[in-house]
Amino acid sequence: MNPAFTLFMWARGPAFDVALAIFAAGITLRLVEMVVLGRKTDLAPAKGHPIRQGLATIFTRSIPRPGLVRFAPGTYLGGYVFHLGFFAAFLLFAPHIALIRDALGLSWPAANRAIVESATALAVVAAIILFFSRVMDPVRRALTGFEDYLVLLLSVLPLVTGYVAANKLFGNPEMMLAVHVLSVDALLIVFPFTKLMHSVSFVFSRYYNGAIQGRKGAES
């Protein structure tokens, strides 16, 4: 009857359910698989505070070391703007807050549309910068594979499709919403299988780094 509606309902119905189940199962699997490997107790007497510094490093590592930004401005700037923009667009837009409220019972005030849309646009621009740095820069190029491009594309699609749907730039609004939700479904599905895992596992790696350095009383 209405393919756009049918697709939209499928995207936010069964497709989302399956995607979320894969997302939840995959992340749990990988985290458990990682943590249960365990680590030997360090027998060297601590000079600093391993646990405290491990926890602190989860946050402090978000701040770049001075002097490094100028060597890879695209990666640093693109990286920061992309992450901040992505999460601003994700977490400050009312429809997303409604989803989170439905899922977790948590809610917070939404931001002005101008902020959300600027964040989206900035994040997309940042993603383009990151893309070009992967293509042009020798270091990034040496490290980049299919997965990196796939993840970059899948992370930017929800932003672009969301922007198009919210502004009705083209297409049937229901169809664009369907495409937007499908892009999110795709992102959820690939999440556990790719480096997108870093958005969860970084807590562990930063903690371990901080704890190892912290035991020695060294910076992290």
Binding site: A72, T75, D137, R140, K195, S201, F204
Partner: peptide, 9 residues
């Protein structure tokens, strides 16, 4: 290894 995003920093 799980966390590496290939940023090259």
């Amino acid at each position: 290894f799980t966390s590496c995003v290939h940023c090259g920093l």
